[in-house]
Amino acid sequence: MVKFKDETLDRTFAALSDPTRRALLARLGEQDSLSVSELAQPFAMSLPAIMKHLDVLTDAGLVTREKTGRTVACRLTARPMEQAMNWLNRYAQFWSDNLDRLAAFVEEDPWSINRPTSPQSPLTPASQRVQALPSRGGSARGRKKSTPRGPSRKT
């Protein structure tokens, strides 16, 4: 049975949607355990902002935090990521199978060799024939004027 609402999976993908959180996970993947200050060092943001990102990762179950004295150590947790990978693999298998069937169908298509080239050919089914539309003769009255381009957003 397919679950249409899986809160753990939703939280995992929501946590992974942010590039800063993905970078934090990548740093934790390189080392077994890092303190919050070590983890925050390469980022150009405040420690409270890093803590908010770590809260999201902790709520999603991707990171565990352990306090020893005044130091908080963070570790990567694999279980939610495994669930996300299982979900992705199920759909990857679905699309792979369907694309393989499509490729086999296209490669076996007998119509590609004998298909008429003219869309008006009597051998072309009526549903595929192109109907000529009446020309407006270049009249400026029938054309829509384009609006000026707005300012572009830089990301």
Rank of each mutant, 00 (worst) to 15 (best):
M1E: 09
K3D: 15
F4P: 01
D6I: 00
E7K: 13
E7H: 10
R11F: 00
R11G: 07
T12Y: 02
F13N: 05
L16Q: 04
L16P: 01
S17H: 01
S17E: 02
S17P: 04
D18T: 01
T20K: 01
R22I: 00
R22A: 00
A23K: 00
L24S: 02
L25Q: 02
A26C: 00
R27W: 00
L28F: 01
L28Y: 00
D32H: 07
S35C: 05
S35P: 12
V36H: 15
S37A: 10
S37G: 08
S37N: 12
E38H: 08
E38G: 03
A40M: 10
F43H: 08
M45W: 02
M45H: 08
S46D: 07
L47D: 06
P48T: 07
P48V: 07
A49S: 12
A49M: 07
A49N: 11
I50L: 06
I50W: 03
M51V: 14
H53L: 05
H53T: 07
L54H: 11
L54Y: 11
D55Q: 09
L57C: 08
T58D: 08
A60F: 02
L62G: 03
L62N: 06
L62T: 03
V63P: 05
V63W: 06
T64W: 00
R65Q: 13
E66P: 00
E66Q: 14
K67T: 15
T68E: 15
T68R: 11
G69H: 07
R70P: 11
T71K: 09
T71P: 13
V72T: 15
A73T: 14
C74H: 11
T77D: 13
A78W: 01
R79M: 04
P80N: 07
P80W: 05
P80H: 06
P80G: 06
M81Y: 04
Q83P: 03
Q83D: 10
Q83E: 05
M85N: 09
L88E: 10
R90E: 14
A92F: 08
Q93N: 04
W95L: 11
S96A: 06
D97G: 04
N98T: 07
L99R: 04
D100V: 10
D100R: 11
R101P: 03
R101S: 10
A104W: 00
A104R: 08
A104Q: 12
E108D: 14
D109N: 09
P110Q: 08
W111T: 15
S112W: 08
I113E: 15
R115M: 13
R115E: 15
T117R: 15
P119H: 06
Q120E: 15
Q120C: 12
P122N: 11
P122D: 15
L123Y: 12
A126S: 13
A126V: 10
S127C: 05
Q128G: 05
R129G: 05
V130L: 10
Q131S: 13
A132T: 09
A132P: 03
A132Y: 01
P134S: 06
R136E: 14
G138R: 01
G138S: 01
S139T: 03
A140L: 11
G142T: 13
G142I: 06
R143L: 11
R143D: 14
K144Y: 05
S146M: 05
P148Y: 02
R149G: 12
P151D: 14
